[in-house]
Nucleic acid binder design. Structure first.
Length: 258
DNA sequence: ATGGCTGAGCTACTCAGA
């Protein structure tokens, strides 16, 4: 089973690229971030025509997450308890793989720049609430896959020039420690686990020829609970969608589970 | 240190992204 995570930077601006990707790669489940659309503007029909059911948590203009699936899903959850600002940044579901029920949690973590503003405070608060929820689930020994745009560069190797990001909301020590908290709770960075010291990115800025120069960042991740490590077969960053016309600035990460 | 590029909403320009 192939699960993909992709920040598409607007589902409507990206629909042709998304359809190309789905038809050529055929993932079973896709976690989308930054769909930038409400329910009424989401292209349910177009995606259904090529074999995908869509479940979304949308809002106008900004944010928004969705789960696409070849099979129908139930038990969709769209809440992060305690988040009073209620931006559309999380959607989850349950899928049975072999004998295990796995909770798939799709997140779009706030960017947080500029630092030392209310945006940065919201990022910290959002992550703290998220950590609290995940901790509850892990204490109940629930099988978890978290996929999405974390807006966190975990380590030096995950940026083309990490020094430039030392005081950035993506890489500040305080933020990296939040990521480590998740790891220390019993989650595994599937990419780093499988690819060892490989240096690859999931995001390249639109500006200044970042893609051409490979000035990228690895900020889109899959974290899996260690009770399903044996089910994780492979992970791949698929750079093809980033090379196309009218690309998203992010590219998909694909996880194989069986 | 800053700007550069893209999308939404809307129709001029701001906000947001990372």
């Amino acid at each position: 089973m192939k699960i993909s995570s992709w920040n598409v930077n607007s589902i409507r601006a990206r629909i042709d690229n998304v359809k190309d990707y789905l038809e050529s790669t055929s993932p079973d489940v896709v976690l989308l971030q930054e769909i930038k659309a409400e329910e009424k503007n989401f292209p349910y029909e177009e995606l259904n025509k090529i074999g995908y059911h869509s479940y979304i948590s949308g809002q106008k203009s900004y944010n928004g997450v969705a789960i696409l699936s070849k099979k129908k899903l139930d038990k969709i959850n769209r809440l992060l308890p305690g988040d009073n600002i209620k931006q559309a940044r999380i959607i989850s579901t349950e899928i049975k793989i072999k004998s295990k029920v796995i909770e798939f949690i799709n997140i779009y973590v706030p960017n947080g720049n500029p630092v030392d503003t209310d945006k940065y405070e919201y990022k910290i608060k959002w992550i703290d609430l998220f950590i609290k929820e995940i901790n509850k689930k892990l204490n109940k020994d629930i099988n978890i896959v978290i996929g999405g745009d974390f807006n966190i560069i975990p380590d030096d190797i995950d940026a083309y020039d990490s020094k430039r990001y030392l005081n950035d909301a993506l890489f500040r020590l305080e933020i990296r420690k939040k990521y480590r908290t998740l790891i220390n709770m019993g989650l595994v960075d599937a990419y780093r686990h499988i690819k060892k010291n490989k240096q690859e990115y999931t995001f390249w800025d639109y500006m200044a020829g970042s893609w051409q120069k490979n000035y990228g960042l690895r900020i889109d991740h899959f974290l899996v609970s260690n009770n399903i490590l044996e089910n994780i077969k492979n992970i791949n960053i698929n750079k093809k969608p980033r090379s196309k016309n009218k690309p998203s600035d992010h590219t998909p990460v694909e996880l194989e589970i069986s």
